[in-house]
């Protein structure tokens, strides 16, 4: 086994890892304030990829609008649209469930997942449609010294890392972020101090949804866009979240990256286990550190 193969798979693993990180980050942010697990997170990732695809390839064919929305525009526009869907879901539906057992939030978002997945399965092939909109400037490969790596993938890694760490910085080190953390710590008291907690909750959910949408746009040129792309991913991300524990933002990011790396390396050493290795790691964590690597024991 050459070092080069290992490094190459590690880098590809990191590529998957940044998606895990972005999605588990979104789940953790939402969980912190709303105490619910957003099952539809995977569907929102898929939705992000599909909006980018439709904006690029199908606007004229379907709606008769002769506009093509390019990759860079999608990168800004799609998270806003998915975030808007998040606002709608939170305001219309989730808000009415806060007083109930948290499992109802999970069940509601599961239903939403089925709806979104079913809708797109009607119009698109389950095996996937390629996204042709990868920008010219990001095509080709870069010479990293030890290997040639696709420029776009490198861009996706760097861009996602920047987004993740910007989110971390925003929550942990800005004034607005400190208000958010106060809301997580004690919503009633925070509200008593005059902060609009319900608005914070809505925006937080929208932000998490937008993050999932953004990950979807980034994923579109790499993987083919398919109605099932989110569902397959979100269950792994759940395991990532159980492993990392949802107590810390940095924990969610780091465990996402690390587990992507582990998955990539498993592909080198024992390929059949690549799709299950994260679940087995979750079993180990449950046995020896049930609260998760970064979680706090209750």
């Amino acid at each position: 086994m050459s070092m080069q193969v290992i490094l190459a798979q590690a880098l590809l693993g990191l590529n998957v890892g940044v998606f895990y990180a972005m999605l588990s980050l979104g789940l953790a942010v939402i969980f912190g304030l709303l105490n619910i697990i957003n099952f539809a997170h995977g569907a929102m990732y898929m939705l992000g990829a599909f909006i980018a695809l439709i904006g690029y390839s199908f606007l004229e064919q379907w709606f008769g609008i002769s506009v093509q929305i390019g990759f860079w525009a999608s990168l800004i526009l799609v998270p806003l649209l998915v975030g808007l869907l998040g606002v709608t879901i939170e305001r219309l539906l989730l808000r009415r469930l806060y007083d109930l057992d948290h499992i109802y939030g999970l069940l509601l978002t599961f239903g939403i997942t089925l709806i979104l997945q079913g809708l797109f399965s009607n119009y698109f092939n389950v095996s996937g449609t390629p996204y042709p909109g990868q920008p010219e400037s990001l095509s080709g490969v870069v010479d990293l010294g030890f290997m040639y790596f696709p420029t776009y993938r490198l861009f996706a890694i760097v861009f996602s890392l920047v987004v993740c760490f910007a989110t971390w910085f925003f929550i942990e080190h800005t004034k607005l972020g400190s208000r958010l953390r106060a809301g997580v710590e004690n919503p009633d008291l925070t509200q008593a101090f005059g902060l609009n907690v319900p608005l914070m909750i809505t925006l937080t959910f929208a932000f998490g949804a937008g993050l999932a949408g953004l990950a979807g746009v980034l994923a579109a040129p790499i993987y083919s866009v398919s109605p099932l792309m989110g569902a397959d991913l979100i269950i792994v991300v759940f395991a990532v979240v159980v492993i990392g524990g949802m107590g810390s933002i940095m924990g969610a990011i780091l465990s996402g990256l690390a587990l992507g790396l582990v998955e990539g390396l498993t592909k080198v050493f024992y390929p059949p286990a690549a799709s299950t290795v994260i679940f087995f790691l979750m079993v180990l964590v449950l046995l020896f550190r049930p609260a998760g690597l970064f979680g706090k024991e209750k």
Binding site: L93, R96, L97, Y104, L107, L108, F110, G111, I112, T113, L114, I115, L116, Q117, G118, L119, S121, N122
Partner: peptide, 13 residues
């Protein structure tokens, strides 16, 4: 799937 999802949402709500 869309219909089952909708029933899910209605039931929960």
């Amino acid at each position: 799937q869309v219909i089952l999802g909708t029933i899910f949402v209605v039931c929960v709500m």
